[in-house]
């Protein structure tokens, strides 16, 4: 468990006490779950099955390694994960071939629930995985991790095995920010620190307890996942956090320190698009929960500028955060998973 540090001389507000308590009780480190034999016993006691979902779009450089490590360590050596599935958005490289060659189940997102069409976006893959996969717990892991290790799955699933009240476990990592005097900044990433944390601080201060709310690695119980609406783009994680918090409270969350994650850096331009999508999803949740009155319709046109010499031009890109309904609302899903 992590020590919670407070600003000196300032009385704690109620929300601060809540966050401080939660950080002590619901924040884990992956090393607490090093004993695979014990994890297998805990899984058997809990009587749950685990699906691992890796959403992909042109990830041929890293997908092979993820599949090899997860399949070897979490299926062949220890029967921890019951299925490993790659849900692909239509890669044009060798992602699917490589994943299949190393033993993953591979699916094209467009071919899952085809009667509901296909929308391009990572959230679409995550949503369709709920229908396609069988596990009681679904663990999502991004495909672009270079330093892959079994802890990316065990660290996230383990709290669900030991703590029945926990529904949703998020990953967080060390980031190479400046360290001083033993303090470790939460280092949530640029979009988190500049956009999401300020928004949460204003509207949902309890959610600031999450070190990296946008991390793409999390494990969730199916019973919760099937009730969540899914933005198909950048806003899916933010939207989830708000929905789970509003319906189940902060104690439904846990977070696990996975130490270090090495991945591709995104350009500032791409982070701008990401922020725009997140902001749309955030405003949609404000409207949904009637938190801010008279909120205007969200404009889906993201406007950036480009300069070349003395030539200045607009780079407009339409980013619409479409939303999929809770999976449990779909008859096909209820039939396949016995929900009627």
């Amino acid at each position: 468990m992590h020590q919670v540090l407070n600003l000196k001389g300032k009385p704690m507000l109620e929300v601060d006490k809540t966050v401080a308590r939660w950080l002590k009780t619901n924040t884990f480190h992956h090393s607490e779950f090093w004993d695979m034999q014990e994890l297998i016993r805990a899984k058997e006691r809990a009587g749950i099955s685990i699906s691992l979902c890796i959403p992909t779009l042109n990830e041929e450089k890293t997908i092979g390694k993820e599949i090899i490590v997860f399949k070897s360590e979490l299926m062949d050596r220890y029967p921890f994960v019951d299925e490993i599935a790659v849900i692909d958005s239509g890669s044009t490289d060798n992602t699917i071939e490589i994943a299949a060659s190393y033993g993953a189940d591979t699916y094209l997102s467009a071919e899952i629930l085809p009667e509901h069409g296909f929308k391009a976006g990572k959230g679409e893959n995550l949503w369709k995985a709920i229908h396609q996969l069988k596990g009681d717990v679904i663990c999502y892991v991004d495909a672009d991790i270079k330093n892959i290790h079994p802890k990316f799955v065990t660290g996230l699933v383990a709290p669900l095995l030991y703590r029945p009240e926990v529904q949703y476990v998020k990953a967080f990592y060390d980031r190479p920010l400046a360290l001083s005097e033993g303090l470790r900044p939460s280092g949530g990433g640029r979009v988190t620190e500049i956009l999401v944390r300020p928004l949460f601080s204003i509207f949902f201060p309890e959610l600031t307890a999450l070190m990296q709310p946008l991390s793409g690695e999390y494990a969730v119980r199916r019973g919760l996942l099937e009730t969540l609406p899914f933005p198909i783009g950048y806003g899916v994680e933010t939207s989830h956090l708000i929905d789970v918090f509003r319906t189940h409270g902060l104690d439904a969350f846990a977070q696990t320190d996975l130490d270090r994650r090495v991945h591709r850096n995104q350009s500032t331009i791409d982070l701008g698009k990401m922020s725009f999508g997140i902001l749309q999803a955030f405003l949609n949740r404000l409207r949904h929960y009637d938190i801010v009155s008279e909120l205007p319709e969200v404009n889906g046109m993201f406007r950036q500028l480009q300069a070349e010499g003395r030539c200045y031009e607009m780079l407009n890109r339409e980013i619409i955060e479409e939303e999929r309904p809770p999976m449990v609302n779909l008859p096909e899903y209820r039939e396949r998973h016995g929900r009627d």
Binding site: I68, S72, Y102, H149
Partner: peptide
């Protein structure tokens, strides 16, 4: 295969 390849990755990294 998988166990060997995973060992190569982990020892290699």
């Amino acid at each position: 295969r998988e166990i060997l390849f995973a060992n190569i990755i982990m020892a290699g990294e």
